[in-house]
């Protein structure tokens, strides 16, 4: 990708230089706007309650302290349970890993079947699956709660895994379908003549070519499921709650003195996994974001 204006010669002269400075200034101001909440969280989480009360909102911590982090991690009270964020963090991992793996596998298979072995009505099937990605969750909250109850999965990690797999299928199928459309059908024909079957072509030819979209899908699903709050709040009970629900409970606890540094540390703990993934593989995250919305 190259800049649109790279086709043109750069502007010359003093006016152009001033405009250039203005441009950078605006961009940096916006950067500050976007960074502010995150910086606030980070600095505050390293401050002592004393310093928060007396110091300025934007100042850097004077005495760098990890107390709030360790307190948030294993001592903070979430409801009546004072084991900190750690068990909930673990809950999220237990939910996210299988949900991501299962929904990605199904998405890859669906995308492969819907593009390379098209059957009558394949487009309608795809359209109906795709609609799921826009579904307002509120419509399915109640029936899902009832169904999970009937299946004996109410309040459990298993229930949440099921929910995330089902409602993630729309996205994973979309990603793989759009990717596989760009792989020529001739490869499948050649492999068929060479004697490979449906699954052999998938594992030996398609999957080895799928690394980029695999990364996009896994990152997307990981971020979505880790960040989920609504399903977690609706379907998980007590000790099985994911980290976002625990964070919300912690922050909104009204009993006792408000420990802002602990709140911020807890928020950072809950946000760190997706933030790290984003910083390391932002390119793939952006691709996921734009994959469903921009043609081609």
């Amino acid at each position: 990708m190259s800049s649109l204006t790279s086709a043109l010669p750069p502007a010359q002269g003093t006016g152009a230089r001033i405009a250039r400075w203005g441009l950078y200034l605006i961009l940096l101001l916006f950067a500050a706007y976007y960074l502010l909440p995150l910086l606030l969280m980070i600095t505050t989480s390293f401050k002592s309650p004393e310093e928060i009360r007396t110091g300025s909102l934007l100042s850097l911590p004077r005495d760098f302290s990890l107390d709030a982090w360790s307190y948030a991690w294993n001592r903070a009270c979430i409801g009546a349970d004072c084991r900190g964020m750690a068990p909930y963090f673990l809950n999220s991992i237990v939910i996210v890993v299988p949900a991501v793996v299962i929904s990605t596998i199904f998405g890859a298979l669906n995308g492969y079947a819907l593009t390379k072995w098209r059957f009558r009505g394949a487009n309608i099937v795809f359209g109906m699956i795709l609609f799921g990605s826009f579904l307002p969750s509120q419509v399915i909250l109640l029936p899902m709660a009832q169904t999970l109850g009937a299946l004996g999965l109410a309040g459990s990690a298993g229930g949440l895994i099921l929910v995330h797999v089902v409602y993630g299928l729309a996205f994973t199928t979309l990603f793989f379908r759009n990717y596989y459309v760009s792989i020529p059908d001739d490869l499948v024909k050649a492999a068929t003549i060479d004697g490979a079957g449906f699954f052999q072509i998938f594992t030996k030819i398609m999957l080895p070519l799928s690394l980029p979209i695999l990364v996009v899908t896994i990152i997307w699903q990981f971020t979505q499921i880790w960040n989920d709050f609504l399903y977690g709040a609706s379907f998980a009970a007590g000790g099985a709650q994911p980290v976002t629900v625990a964070l919300n409970n912690l922050v909104n606890t009204t009993t006792g003195v408000k420990q802002y540094n602990v709140d911020m540390a807890a928020a950072m703990i809950a946000g760190l996994p997706t933030l790290v993934v984003y910083v390391l593989a932002g390119k793939y995250f952006i691709r996921g974001l734009t994959a469903g919305s921009v043609k081609g």
Partner: peptide, 14 residues
């Protein structure tokens, strides 16, 4: 017992 050569060659890139 046939073999085919494709216009795009259809070589397996991996």
């Amino acid at each position: 017992d046939i073999a085919m050569v494709f216009q795009s060659y259809a070589l397996y890139p991996n």
